[in-house]
Amino acid sequence: METHATQKVEEKLFQNRYRVDAGRPHIRIKDAELCTHQCSQKQCTVCCPAGCYTQEGNGKVVLITDGCMECGTCRIVCDEHRNLDWEWPRGGFGILFKFG
């Protein structure tokens, strides 16, 4: 019955307008080892609505903030480890909603 395949999140984000602050990500993982070894759930990889967090085969969590919609989900769901340095992008950078 379901004929449409699920759209990749990249295809959705492609519709959005961004001004990326190259080389200055506004979110950073504080301690990558902690994600790899001490966080079993890695819920950032599920909950981030832009799919910014991906888990590699060796358990490492990779963060690429380019598609970030600045919602704050990742920071709040990381409540057991508080392993993110989370700031707003510099003024004028980041997502620029056309419609919102």
Binding site: M1, E2, Q7, K12, Q41, Q43, V46, C47, I76, V77
Partner: peptide, 22 residues
């Protein structure tokens, strides 16, 4: 978010399922 945390469906998959609802 407390519920999103507990499960494995991504937000965009949830939205796409909604769009496919008859």
């Amino acid at each position: 978010l407390s519920d999103f945390k507990r499960q494995t469906v991504t937000p965009y998959e949830l939205l796409d399922r909604m769009k496919r609802h008859p």
